[in-house]
Design a protein around this nucleic acid. Structure first.
Length: 617
DNA sequence: ATAGGGTTAG
């Protein structure tokens, strides 16, 4: 008996070090030789080990192991169920659960938790609800904290917020894990108010709960709140880790201000989770710097990372692409192919966007054609949108129409949007009509599409059609998203401008500066681009409207408030208008300043009269 | 044992 025990624990110790299936099978043979194959304890351990071996197909191996034991105990049953629950097929796990119940064997908490976590991963709410009912039938589990917590998580992952809430409300005992589960459920639904109320009522908050709030705000495009919560977390002396940092870094990326970028970079470096040693933080910082307009620093972070994964490469490639550094993006893509890191569809979105901006139609088509065969990346609707953009931008509008007809899935808005954008760039109202017809069905409330169509008509002088579109906008009661721009002054203060701004304290000085600049531009041939105004009003009124655009005010302020040698960085919430783009080009030439404008999709780097976007955006 | 996780754009 004692010898048996010693053997058992020895085998279990060996199993702990098992990292591949062959090794596990060798140990299995050893178990058999020592007549331990009927021992629940040993076989349970073996099952657990092989369950963790990802990428190894399990087939019927778990069942065969299990069948050798004459009187399996609940733990062995659970290990078997867990193997199929986590590795699939889930239906098999459920069948085993039923036979366990039929044999009168009482499950343990872990049996339910394994099944719930699998239902969550598979988003299988039907099965989850059935199992929920089982927990009520089997004595004692309705009030089991651990089981209830995994149930909340399951309902959260299935998107069933009300069910998660009911479990929470009916729990007799709750801990910080229960609260956090529900907070995340609300956050994923975008109900940050409810999440915040729950969090405020949470008696003992830990790092994970705080992180859930930071991440929740970041994911719901409320970066200011995310930063505030993070600051409070720091003030209260809560520990942080890489997950906390990633959440707040993503918020700083959305804020786009170098002040926040520096702030969080320093915190990350001194926390022990710096870019050099942590892939997660490093990749998030790459994305943040590129979205803050500092693609050089993004690249510095990239170069300084000890380990890089597909996120690091993709973020950097996308970063180069949105800054108009197409060749750098493409080169990095080919560098990546030399490493073990495999590209995914996001990587291809990045590299195809780069090809599109550089006008490299052939190279982009080549990559798209070989993507699946050579790199195992299946085309998605988003990738088709990249192709529509690539071809459309280059002027091949008919080819885009053919691509749309032949694509194997239903075109998403982005595909038609790319075609509409291309029709606008190439002044083709007929194709713009085709694209917008489909786009209005898919995105009836997206005012940008209506404006782009109206703009295309305006450029062609088709004013009747312009008013028809404007009537459509009125009928649908769509409100134009107010355009605004902001500039970070030397001290990190952010100055915000709207079109026709009168509220800024230095507005007179700014207007004077702008007027002088525009006069000097006229001296070198600038003419206000009146077709940028999609209203049927007289030319004088058009000139006045154009002059008051928020990005022009921001430019004038930026020129006034920063040092002569430094770049002016402007951010805009909408697409930059053609006339402003022309003015930025001219201003960069006249003043010798570098001007960087981030609009809603990309960065424009104006230097010496030219823009990095090659006047396509 | 259970809760928080980064890259996609017209």
């Amino acid at each position: 008996m004692v010898v048996q025990r010693v053997l058992e624990s020895e085998v279990v110790r060996i199993l702990d070090g098992c990292t591949n299936l062959n090794h596990a099978k060798q140990v299995h043979a050893h178990i058999y030789r020592n007549n331990l194959h009927q021992c629940s304890y040993v076989i349970t351990k073996l099952l657990r080990v092989i369950t963790t071996l990802r990428h190894v197909p399990l087939h019927s191996y778990p069942r065969l192991l299990f069948a050798q034991v004459h009187t399996p105990n609940p733990f062995l049953w659970t290990a078997l169920i867990r193997a199929y629950a986590l590795r699939g097929p889930l239906s098999q796990a459920l069948r085993l659960f039923c036979s366990m119940r039929k044999r009168g064997i009482t499950p343990v908490s872990f049996t339910f938790s394994a099944l719930f976590s699998a239902c969550g991963a598979a988003s299988d709410a039907t099965l989850g609800v059935q199992l929920h009912a089982q927990t009520l039938l089997v004595g004692g589990f309705a009030s089991d904290l651990f089981v209830n917590n995994t149930m909340i998580d399951m309902y959260m992952k299935c998107g069933l917020l009300r069910c998660a809430r009911r479990v929470f409300d009916e729990m007799t005992e709750r801990d910080v894990v229960s609260w956090t589960g529900l907070i995340v459920a609300y956050a994923r639904r975008g109900e940050m108010k409810a999440a915040q109320d729950l969090f405020d009522g949470l008696p003992v908050k830990d790092m994970v709960a705080w992180t859930a709030m930071v991440t929740g705000y970041a994911q719901n495009a409320m970066p200011k709140n995310a930063v505030e919560v993070f600051q409070r977390l720091l003030d209260e002396g809560v520990e942080i880790d890489e997950v906390t940092l990633v959440g707040v870094i993503s918020a700083c990326a959305q804020l786009g201000a170098s002040k926040y970028a520096k702030w969080i970079r320093d915190i990350a470096e001194s926390s022990g989770f710096g870019a050099g040693s942590n892939v997660l933080v490093g990749s998030a910082l790459i994305d943040m710097y590129s979205k803050c307009g500092n693609v050089e620093e993004a690249y510095n972070v990239f170069k300084g990372m000890r380990e890089r994964n597909v996120f690091s490469y993709s973020s950097m490639i996308v970063g180069f692409a949105i800054h108009g550094r197409a060749h750098a993006a493409i080169k990095l893509f080919y560098d990546m192919l030399e490493t073990e890191v495999k590209p995914n569809h996001v990587t291809f979105v990045g590299v195809l966007t780069a090809c599109s901006h550089a006008g490299l139609v052939n190279q982009g088509q080549q990559l798209f054609a070989t993507m699946e065969k050579c790199y195992g990346v299946a085309p998605t609707a988003e990738l088709y949108a990249c192709m529509a953009d690539l071809l459309g931008r280059a002027g091949y509008l008919e080819k885009v129409l053919r691509l749309v007809e032949t694509m194997p899935m239903k075109p998403v808005g982005a595909v038609w949007g790319a075609l509409l954008g291309a029709s606008h760039i190439h002044g083709n109202p007929e194709v713009a009509e085709i694209a917008s017809k489909r786009l209005f069905e898919l995105e009836p409330d997206n005012i940008g599409n209506y404006l782009l169509l109206s703009n295309t008509y305006a450029s062609a002088g088709r004013w009747d059609d312009v008013s028809r579109v404007r009537k459509l906008i009125r009928e649908k009661n769509l409100k134009k998203n107010p355009g605004w721009s902001w500039v970070e002054a030397k001290n990190g203060m952010i100055h915000k401008f709207v079109a026709g701004d009168v509220k800024h304290p230095q507005i007179n000085e700014i207007k004077k500066e702008l007027n002088e600049l525009l006069e000097r531009l006229k001296g070198i041939g600038y003419q206000p681009n009146l077709s940028s105004v999609p209203y049927d009003i007289n030319d004088k009124e058009k000139r006045l409207l154009l002059m008051a655009h928020s990005e022009k005010l921001a430019l004038a302020f930026g020129l006034l408030s920063t040092d002569a040698g430094s770049a002016v960085k402007i951010m805009k919430n909408l697409r930059i208008c053609e006339d402003c783009h022309i003015v930025m080009c001219g201003a960069s030439k006249l003043t010798g300043r570098k001007i960087v404008v981030r609009d809603n999709t990309r960065f424009h780097h104006f230097l010496n009269g030219a823009c990095s976007c090659r006047n396509f955006w």
